[in-house]
Design a protein around this nucleic acid. Structure first.
Lengths: 199, 199, 199, 199
DNA sequence: AATGAATGAGCCTTCATTCAT
DNA sequence: CATGAATGAAGGCTCATTCAT
């Protein structure tokens, strides 16, 4: 199974997903885009879902790469939190197509259902990308439970902002997602400091 | 255009939508449920999108009814903020299908093409539902700009939590959306008080 | 659901089954033959299998009509046996297309599998067509068990001959199915008489 | 054309055919089973039909081997008839897949188009397997014509029973194919004896 | 207003076969 | 001899929509 040609199909798939969304992306269309007949696609992927899975997996790898590269060892925990959180948020803010992919994972794929195995594997990679924030929160003195809670809230806040931004709803409010996310981070850090050092 | 029969079709659509979800809801099925043949549906709605639009409009009416009924005139601004915010959040937390409806328009993070007119009308009603929170924020002393910003953040936070909850992702974190939303509200109010009264 | 048009589709299906056999008979082809597009077929039948079921059901009705009309009340049991058996055998010998249909029931449909309900119903009609022979055997003095056994053998013999005839294999032997079937019947009656009256 | 590798492909074909039946057996699957890619199969066989032809030819060889091994020189003609007939009948009763193979050529009661040459060759081998019964009948005193007629009837009877058994229809009658075949043989021998020695 | 029939485009997938390498 | 890639045709089926009646 020639890997470069598989990649070619995957590129076509990505572009079709971009252009037509998850529902509009058909095997026919992907094949057309790749310059193949539909049957040829099945040399590279077992079925439509596998294509989506591969696309998402690859997106999550890029996300993790960005998160891993963010910050450095010399940083204070609060700085690191900011760096790591801004990394994942920034990745999706800058790459709406990856957001699309991620959203299918989170929203649309309930019915079609990825194989349980793939689903778990993808969940794990998402988890990986969020883990550094949780570690930074712990380094700031939070216990495991609190760190998890704050990290979940942080993730939810980012997700909400990304959704509002990507759908243009945020303009309705005359706001900017990045600024609001930064503000949330600042408030969070302040609150944690205050809670940590009650005179 | 007999209005009571149109309502009958809409009821059928809602029930089908509840039963089969966004993708499973077909004109055929809606017609069957309504006791009509597919063609008859087109006497009442121009096309499938229009049915969704009507459904969503009606959902937003119910949302506004819930928000309007929340709180009362005797409340302190902070209490009112809590009441109003909990109203819209609770509405969607308790009625996942209404959330689906809302997300339908946003499917794949890409806004669906409704007629500009309908779109604006729907936006306005969503705005209406969020307005009371903004008013409460102003009553707490925030200027217009700050109130808008905080309200947007609040909305984004809720949306993010609802999405994580609705897709089951929040269980991945072992958290509960309602609790996290309450916590956000508490933090918010605390912060506003502190900012308002710097000793 | 206009019944005459349903019949038109069924006619087309019959002709396609005749022409192309069970495996070659596709919905597309049936539609083409009927002057319809494929989707239209589904207004009249739930799926491909239902078409086959309807075709077979109708064939079995004709078979039963022929068997019912055979013989008369004045006949001796042995004469009646001959009349009834010759009726079902003759029906299939003269209508190879009905034999085709029946054979799909008996041979080809294992995988596709008609719905259990339909299958049972069709089995019952086949049973009906064979029942008169069994009744005649009983009237000739056989007990229930023996009558059933002899009727089964008679059926098997006829089926074997029909298969050899229809596939042309019987020419390989220079024989004729009808003659051999008659010979079997004569032998059978002789044997039963002898067994019944062992001087 | 390496013959041992061709045999390897044929083995794979047989095993796939056994596992998945007539309709489920694809070139892809046969290749997979043989450890080849689909294209490689065409080095050994012109097309799919040719594989079936080879499979059937080989099946007929096994049938003939079984028939040849049945009975022995010391037997009375009647015993030999029983032995030889039970041999071919027993072979198919015990090896339903070989029966499938035989029926494959006859699918839908319509002879498949093999090359005339192959078809004739297969017919000859089938003939070979039935010949010993005919010889035994002659040894019992029948003239050529009668022996051929009885042998044809015997074959038809067996074929009918095998078909009813293989498709499960015989259970509908609560009967057993082997018992009925034996009964037929006994009746046949009795009849021949009686016809031969009319007191 | 409603029906019933039909369309046409589309869906995912399978498969025997071909052919350059 | 064998591969790997690809084709092209077909398969059953679904669906929003149209339109004469």
């Amino acid at each position: 199974m020639n890997n470069s040609r598989r990649a070619l199909v995957l590129d076509a798939a990505r572009s079709v997903f971009e252009r037509l969304g998850n529902e509009g992306a058909s095997i026919r269309e992907i094949a057309r885009q790749a310059g193949y007949t539909p049957g040829a696609i099945y040399s590279y992927f077992d079925n439509k879902e596998a294509i989506y899975g591969a696309l998402l997996a690859e997106s999550l790898e890029r996300l993790n790469a960005v998160v891993d590269a963010a910050g450095d060892a010399t940083m204070q925990p609060a700085e690191l939190l900011d760096a790591k959180a801004s990394a994942w948020f920034g990745f999706y803010a800058a790459n709406p197509r990856d957001l699309d992919l991620g959203f299918y994972l989170v929203q649309g794929m309930r019915s079609r259902e990825l194989t349980a195995e793939l689903n778990e594997q993808l969940n794990d990679r998402l988890h990986d990308a969020l883990q550094p924030c949780e570690a930074a929160l712990r380094a700031m003195g939070l216990n495991a439970e609190d760190a998890l809670r704050e990290n979940t809230s942080l993730f939810a806040h980012g997700v909400g902002l990304l959704l509002l931004q990507h759908t243009g709803r945020i303009h309705m409010f005359g706001q900017d997602a990045v600024i609001l996310f930064d503000a949330y981070l600042i408030s969070l850090v302040e609150r944690l400091y205050r809670d940590a050092s009650p005179a």
